[in-house]
């Protein structure tokens, strides 16, 4: 990265350090990609975001992406990750905001960077993190009535055959009897359940044997 003619310069400036100490955030250890990172408390994140965008010495005017990481064994469980780019100073910054599982909510930065709108919808869709203040927090990739947040680590990799749960819950898909001309006793192609469904993700096709 260092040899690139337009490689971003370090974001570890005095202005950033001042802001970090003012808001009680902390610097993250150097990442392999060389992008400076800070860990921010979610209560102060919205105001910090405004400062990052508006302060003359910082001017992080472009929100590159918003994503999240699920750490099943950590507290807080989720990390919402923002990448900011200052076009004025050619600097990159990574911001992480911890979000606990019990109250999976994070302030929305749509009013600061309009780009965040769809990105935050995607994070909500995939991880179930809600963004307080988002103008239109709907699922963006999965169907509106999809019951899970599939990028959580406890969601099975091969997915859940939710045709059954769709039918049970009267969702869009299963509003009518679907398997019209199927001969008696013939089931659709079986899903390998040898490893079982993780807790909370059973689709009802394999009822628990509690006799």
């Amino acid at each position: 990265m260092a040899d690139h003619p337009v490689s971003p310069s370090s974001s570890k400036t005095e202005a950033l350090a001042a802001l970090v100490s003012e808001f009680g955030a902390e610097h993250l250890p150097d990442a392999a990609d060389g992008i400076a990172g800070i860990l921010v408390d979610r209560d102060s994140w919205l105001e910090l975001a405004r400062q990052l965008r508006d302060q003359e010495d910082l001017r992080f005017d472009l929100l590159v992406d918003v994503t999240a990481v699920d750490w099943p064994d950590r507290q807080p469980r989720f990390e919402v990750v923002y990448h900011l780019w200052s076009l004025t100073h050619n600097r990159l910054l990574r911001v992480k905001v911890g979000v606990p599982e019990e109250q999976a909510e994070c302030p929305s930065v749509v009013l600061v960077w309009g780009t965040a709108n769809w990105h935050e919808r995607e994070v909500f869709d995939m991880y179930g993190v809600r963004f307080a203040g988002h103008p239109d927090l709907r699922r963006i990739l999965m169907p509106d009535d999809y019951p899970y947040h599939p990028l959580r680590k406890d969601f099975p990799l091969e997915g859940v055959d939710n045709s059954v749960s769709y039918r049970n819950e009267g969702g869009v898909l299963m509003t009518q009897e679907l398997f019209v001309d199927r001969p008696a006793g013939q089931d659709p192609t079986p899903v390998d359940r040898s490893k079982g469904d993780p807790q909370g993700y059973s689709d009802g096709a394999a009822p628990a044997d509690e006799s």
């Binding site: 990739l141 999965m142 899970y148 599939p150 990028l151 969601f155 990799l157 091969e158 997915g159 859940v160 055959d161 045709s163 898909l173 679907l178 398997f179 019209v180 001309d181 199927r182 659709p188 192609t189 899903v191």
Partner: peptide, 21 residues
């Protein structure tokens, strides 16, 4: 279309026989 195949994951129907004969 037959089983979800290579792309069987959270977003893919594991075989269109789930929704039509």
């Amino acid at each position: 279309a037959s089983s979800g195949g290579l792309y069987r994951n959270y977003s893919v129907v594991p075989g269109v026989d789930r929704i039509m004969p």
